[in-house]
């Protein structure tokens, strides 16, 4: 009989989490990066079509009306508001929530480390992240490659110029068979090729930074000054896992508003729930976000790599099934 009151993580992994959080806090304390806290429960939420937030009802608002509140999917907007208020370099270790399925690498509630560095560009932030990973995972210095280069190296394919038809051909040639008749758009095709064929091939010995994602996958990143087809966004992969996502942060409030509106239009087209964008975040951008780079890193996945766990349940005391 299984005792479902018990934690799924071993006591040694529960201790390893405490050690990991302690090293992360020491790392930032030594660099004068301030630890901050921002709300988990918020009035606005993300518009990104691939993110879904949990929502709840607030029945005690001062105006007497019932309000929808959202559990945050990442502390990004709130932390950027602090940056606009001149808080300076800051980090946060906190819970984030995504209304998604559970899986080997996914629990709907997870722990995120997010930090921002005013005055850094995304390459300087990759340097700092590399130092953090070397410290906590006792690994060598990371590799660094552009998104375009890694596709050329692994698949002899230029992701920036390839047509949808040619990407579909590569997918078929590798026996990647997607159920249903609905055609896949270019970003989804690139994403599938990346997840199935590139991720398992990179960052096996040391972590691998991939930067310069297509502009269509930019989210909150600036577009590159050298090539406007790509965004100053990077991801970190290690042993087949996506560990972190960082940006040279977009500070243009008009451009940010355009991207939000575009998301909202796409949501309507795809029949996704309507969401309220975060107007306070846009107001903060209008007042001026210092030039900065920021990154979010999944602490549970980092811990999985550190203790060699094969399922996220092994590092979370009570995953959703036992929460």
């Amino acid at each position: 009989m299984t005792h479902t009151w018990q934690p799924t993580a071993s006591l040694s992994n529960i201790r390893a989490r405490a050690d990991l959080l302690h090293s992360v806090r020491q790392f930032f304390a030594a660099r004068n990066v301030l630890e901050v806290e921002t709300p988990l429960l918020s009035n606005g939420t993300v518009t990104d079509i691939h993110l879904a937030a949990f929502s709840t009802r607030f029945e005690h608002a001062s105006d007497g009306k019932t309000k929808t509140l959202y559990l945050q999917t990442s502390p990004e907007y709130a932390m950027k508001r602090l940056l606009c208020a001149q808080v300076g370099a800051c980090y946060q270790i906190g819970k984030a929530f995504r209304h998604e399925a559970e899986g080997r690498w996914h629990n709907p509630e997870f722990t995120m480390l997010e930090w921002y560095r005013p005055g850094f560009n995304h390459h300087q932030l990759m340097d700092e992240m590399d130092e953090l990973l070397q410290l906590v995972l006792a690994t060598g210095s990371a590799e660094r490659k552009s998104y375009q280069q890694v596709f050329l190296d692994q698949l002899q394919l230029d992701p920036l110029t390839a047509t949808t038809a040619s990407l579909q051909q590569v997918l078929t040639a590798h026996d990647i068979d997607v159920h249903g008749d609905m055609a896949l758009d270019k970003d989804t095709l690139l994403q599938l090729l990346f997840s199935y064929l590139i991720e398992p091939a990179i960052g096996q010995q040391v972590p691998c930074f991939i930067y310069g994602f297509p502009a269509s996958q930019a989210a909150l990143a600036k577009l590159s000054q050298h090539d406007e087809r790509v965004a100053d966004r990077f991801e970190v992969y290690f042993k087949g896992v996506e560990l972190a996502n960082g940006f040279n942060e977009l500070s243009d409030s008009d451009e940010q508003r355009r991207r939000f509106n575009n998301d909202v239009a796409q949501r309507k087209q795809l029949d996704l729930p309507e969401v309220e964008h975060d107007e306070r975040f846009l107001q903060a951008l209008e007042s001026g976000l210092p030039q900065c780079a920021g990154v979010a890193l999944g602490i549970d996945r980092l811990l999985m790599l550190k203790v060699n766990a094969s399922h996220i349940e092994q590092v979370i005391s009570f995953p959703l099934s036992r929460a």
Binding site: D48, A101, G103, E242, N245
Partner: peptide
């Protein structure tokens, strides 16, 4: 069944 979901992308089941 493996759930595949990049931080910024569509979710699939492999």
């Amino acid at each position: 069944n493996e759930y595949v979901k990049p931080g910024k992308g569509q979710a699939f089941n492999r």
